[in-house]
Design a protein around this nucleic acid. Sequence first.
DNA 1: CTAGGGTTAG
Length: 622
Amino acid sequence: MLCSSVHSKHKLFFHSICYRNPTSVAPKTYNTHHLSLREEQIEDRIAFLLHKCPNMKLLRQIHGNLLRNPFLSSSSPSFKFSMSKILCFCALSPSGDIEYARRLFDVIPQPNVFSWNSMIRGLHLFHNQSREPISLYKQMVLSGFANPNSFTIAFVLKACSNISAIAEGRQLHCHAYRYGLDSSPFVQTGLLNFYGKCEEIASARHVFDEISNKNLFAWSAMISGYARIGMVNEALSLFREMQEVGVSPDEVTMVSVISACAKAGALDLGRWVHAFVDRQGIRADFVLSTSLMDMYAKCGLIGKAKEVFDQMLERDTMAWSTMIVGFATHGLVSDALKLFSRMLESKVEPNHVTFLGVLSACSHSGLVSDGQRFWSTMNEFGISPLMEHYGCMVDLLCRAGLFEEAYSFISRMPVQPNAVIWRTLLMGCKKSGFHDKIEIIARNLLQLEPLNAENYVLLSNIYALNSQWDKVSYMRKKMKDSGIRVLPGCSSMEINGFVHDFIVGDDSHPEIKQIRVVLKDISRRVRLSGHLPWISSVLHDVDDEEKQNALCEHSERLAIAFGLLKTKAPTAIRVVKNLRFCSDCHEVTKIISREYEREIIVRDRIRFHKFVNGSCSCNDFW
DNA sequence: CTAGGGTTAG
């Protein structure tokens, strides 16, 4: 009884599809040919057809023929086999149809694990930012007919990673134990990757430590988890450990290791890793080459990045974009723009990141009209501007001192500006002196981001510049009352394969005593050179002497002092900072480069600053 | 039917 009603449900379903897609009615030849197939021939025939020429049109025909086949009962194994094959194709093939799969799935009375899995994975493949795979999994568990297996858990975990569904992922972790699947390597990697993507590094490490036979995938996933959140030392020591236990890294592992070096600005390590890749004969594909370029660019060796780029035999959009963005952060606008023209000549489609590179290159160099020209060509490439592109344009105009234009640009934006845009505009105010729009901008900014300390610091600095002391103290009070803490400045520097972190005012570094001696020497020589500290860079409510001390303990100063202590000329001192360069430190660093005859390269949150003999590559335009 | 990787405003 049940079977025949299911069969008729199938038939109804098929007719509704035919009705919706009249072109899909099977041609006569297929009909007659297939209607005569006997049950024992069906499975081979289906497998053959799906292997030979899979497309939805053919699939609908096969499906229809199966339903009309008088020799085939819907309860027969062949019928079920064929249906699951069809479901599999619709749900998983790029030329499939997930909606068709869903309706097919809905009429299967008691889908087996295989069908649930196909459907879950299919939903993820077709809608990779949706919760649908997770809801279907819940349905599966509730239905109680089929227990999830290692495939199921792995597929759902992947869906959770993509949308950072932390609670659901944790629950899956429990389910893995409940169903005894926690020892499956696929489940383990799935969990590792899930926790890594959600930046729950302690949980990831816990899973990792529990794995008794760690394979290449487990090592790679753990390294990538550390690399993602910038825990370079951990990523690199894991990379060493993995080799010690005899697991050979492949190109995927190397990409994570390289991107960890890129994040940390760890040039020596990055170079070593590059040599390792060459030595081991690891294949440099698009992704590996791009990560190498990015690493060199982020470590300050833009020429070396270009070398890797030139050696690539073929380049995709990301490779071109990475190189263009690299030139942009180094302030090499003409190189960036030339490369962009070459990219277009090579018929590689630019994407929104490419344009971010092009626009930010223009803005770093004050090329207003070029920037505007590129901005207007974006839609010719079918790229509609994102908030980031609007941000670039506001920055372009502000840096060039065109504050009014920037303000009117914002008022013409079709979307509401975000906090970054208002803050960029505010920094434009700071540069061009007091402006009657400050109050409006401040209100918009603080409404969008009332808890970001950076905003209060910026505003109070602007008010201080204009000697509006009542407003300065109001900003400080507001911050204090809301309990908002400033994100501490942090600078890092690599010495002998270890990345040292310095946090503003932090004295936990083991060599802090020697560092302070160097800092004192710096202060003395800087003072002798006639530099007066610009004390409004310091927010704290303290007297001038303390303000000067506070400036001297900015994280970049600690790192530079450490560099002077640990390295000798002509080695360049390379520092990576998490915030923007403080103006006073920028001046002081110029003086250090002259007085100590050292090349100092600082990557701040925005771009590179290369200090040589008293001047900086940014030409103070930042 | 399974897993790990690249560019992104200020």
